[in-house]
């Protein structure tokens, strides 16, 4: 991992000016994505993970504003690129797929038209060539009878097929990075597995980087190499996937891992993180997890814990890493003595 990062996000702050007040949806997020790797961003709904990717692509709506930080993509300062040029980057170097394949495709145009449009925007090919490329792409994503499907409308395809078409569209220009915003959440489980497998094989073929945004830890375990855990607009833990699953160091991550049912577990009731995500209009002072954290004390309520390197390539934003260790240890002992 000593290569140059393809995407480097530093201290990104994205705020929304809503009628109810200022929402600091993303507040100081930093991460890198290296060529060909998959970075997972996990977190609950509303933690700012989607907003992060929309910020990088500069696709925020009129209420959203990047209030600070920097985004460097392919050596370029994304925030300084004029909109004209940004349009050439979107869909070409950076692509995105969304959660709802039902609503992410335009209902009044055929899927072929929508893919061809993307190709024609970024590549100097004739419309016949673009059509051939679109059919080819549909075949690659595993859509049967692509010659026929290319002229069909989104509503004629099943959810899984639509997501495949969506992937075909986003990969049609061979992007360097793909933001996948909950690409499997709206699909049923067997289709989910197929789509993930497809994404992995296409990643191998095209060598692109993927930023996988999800709340599904199973997806992360399957796909990601490194993971950033977000909570209430901030990254709380950032590590490679094995470390994160084996040795979570932030109480929130630990809670998440503990909440996954394990096949050899005899527990009747799953662990759950007490409380709810705080209202984005009034995030608490200090560590934003302090309202739900079993270990929160003193400093946690006044100071923002910085994201610090705990071990090599393992970053944690918590003042009470040691206490967590102890808590885990005593819990294990408790479990053992119970047995």
């Amino acid at each position: 991992m000593d290569k140059k990062p393809l995407l480097k996000v530093q201290d990104l702050k994205t705020y929304f000016h809503t009628d109810d007040g200022l929402v600091k949806a993303v507040d100081g997020v930093s991460f890198e994505v290296y060529p060909g790797e998959t970075l997972g961003i996990v977190g609950e709904s509303g933690c700012g993970k989607s907003v992060t990717s929309l910020s990088v692509m500069r696709l925020l709506d009129e209420k959203g504003e990047i209030a600070g930080g920097s985004i460097t993509f392919n050596g370029e300062d994304v925030l300084a690129i004029p909109e004209e040029k940004m349009m050439k980057i979107r869909g070409n170097d950076m692509a995105m797929i969304f959660q709802e394949p039902m609503t992410a495709l335009n209902p009044v145009f055929t899927i072929g038209y929508q893919i061809i449009e993307a190709i024609l925007l970024h590549q100097k090919v004739s419309s016949e060539e673009a059509r051939a490329m679109a059919i080819d792409m549909l075949r690659k994503v595993g859509i049967p009878e692509p010659e026929k499907r290319v002229d069909e409308y989104p509503h004629e395809l099943s959810g899984g097929m639509r997501q495949r078409a969506m992937i075909a569209m986003s990969l049609s220009c061979n992007p360097k990075i793909l933001f996948a915003d909950e690409p499997t959440t709206a699909l049923d489980v067997t289709i989910q597995a197929q789509i993930l497998e497809l994404m992995l094989s296409l990643q191998k073929e095209y060598g692109m980087s993927i930023v996988m945004i999800t709340h599904d830890l199973g997806v992360i375990a399957e796909l990601a190499e490194r993971v950033a855990v977000m909570y209430a607009g901030r990254i709380v833990e950032y590590a490679d996937v094995v470390t994160l699953f084996k040795k979570p160091k932030h109480p929130y991550t630990w809670g998440l891992m503990n909440a996954i049912p394990k096949i050899d577990d005899e527990k009747e009731i799953l662990y759950n993180i007490k409380g709810v995500v705080p209202d984005p209009l009034s995030f608490p002072e200090g560590c934003r997890f302090n309202t739900r954290c079993p270990l929160a004390k003193d400093k946690c309520f006044t100071d923002v814990p910085p994201l610090e390197e705990f071990e090599k390539d393992h970053f944690v934003a918590c003042f009470r890493i040691n206490e967590l260790e102890e808590m885990i240890k005593s819990e294990r002992e408790g479990e053992l003595s119970a047995k």
Partner: peptide
């Protein structure tokens, strides 16, 4: 204009 497919269109670089 609030629909997902509009965001999709923007995301693929449509002016």
């Amino acid at each position: 204009l609030r629909k997902d497919y509009i965001r999709t269109a923007r995301a693929k670089g449509v002016p």
